[in-house]
């Protein structure tokens, strides 16, 4: 496990996080960190607690115990809108674009939290260049887009917040393989430009292709962690960590 190179605290640090969903313990005792410029993948089967962690980071859920820190300052008691303003944007599972609004209006709302309004037009232009199809569909109501296009819009909407950390929840879910490849190519481009990401994925191959490091979760706990390269060379252990075949 690589430690952040600089002496300061990592961009995002989670310590001993415990989250309940009603009576169900979804996450118990997860610690992880993401350094600036890094892409970290959270892998695991359905119900392992991946989405719960992202939703807790964004403030949609309150942890029962543990901490979420951004730049060393705790954020786990803040409201979601406040957390977005601090620089964490979340592209949620299932895309969740605003189907009654147009593509342009969705992007506009993505930037609603920004204080540097003068940079918004340039960022919008950047989004349309990253996803040219969105420019074509600019005035179309988002509900009429295809699944892949909606995923691109969800990504672009999150990026319009100008985030320091991008949370991605299953961007490949329910999307044709060809489009998945194209979306991950774009994510790779974003990574080269220095965007920090925490990526939740069930598709191990594409996730490890993009990420620097990964954590594997099983039933709410970290069961394996390492660099993407290490895990790529050791699928057997990943599968084991996924399903708990032998332990």
């Amino acid at each position: 496990m690589s430690n952040p190179p600089s002496a300061g605290p990592p961009l995002l640090a989670i310590e001993d996080l415990r989250v309940d969903y009603g009576a169900v313990r979804a996450v118990h005792g997860v610690s992880l960190h993401v350094a600036a410029g890094e892409v970290v993948a959270l892998l695991g089967a359905n119900g392992a607690g991946k989405s719960t962690i992202l939703r807790t980071i964004s403030g949609l859920l309150r942890p029962r115990a543990g901490q979420v820190q951004l730049d060393g300052a705790p954020i786990h008691r803040l409201a979601p809108a406040r957390i977005v303003r601090l620089g964490i944007a979340h592209s949620p599972e299932g895309r969740r674009v605003f189907g009654n609004l147009t593509v342009a209006e969705n992007l506009r709302l993505g930037a609603t939290s920004r204080t540097d309004r003068d940079k918004v037009p340039a960022d919008r232009e950047r989004m349309y260049n990253l996803f040219p199809i969105l420019r074509e569909r600019m005035h179309q109501v988002a509900g009429t887009l295809s699944g892949g296009e909606q995923q691109m819009l969800a990504l672009a909407r999150a990026l319009m917040a100008g985030p320091r950390l991008l949370l991605l929840d299953e961007p490949s879910l329910g999307i044709a393989p060809l489009i998945v490849r194209s979306i991950f190519a774009t994510l790779g481009e974003l990574k080269r430009q220095g965007t920090t990401m925490l990526l939740v994925e069930q598709n191990i191959n594409v996730a490890l292709g993009l990420a620097d490091r990964a954590y594997v979760l099983r039933t709410g706990e970290v069961s394996l962690t390492g660099t993407a390269a290490e895990l790529r060379d050791n699928y057997e252990r990943v599968a084991e960590a996924y399903l708990g075949a032998r332990q």
């Binding site: 409201a79 809108a81 977005v84 944007a89 009654n100 609004l101 709302l109 993505g110 609603t112 939290s113």
Partner: peptide
């Protein structure tokens, strides 16, 4: 726009930073 967005999906509205 935010009001319409929140009417459609309150959580997603939260996630784009709408109060």
């Amino acid at each position: 726009l935010g009001m319409r967005a929140a009417a459609e999906d309150m959580q997603a509205a939260n996630l784009v930073g709408l109060d």
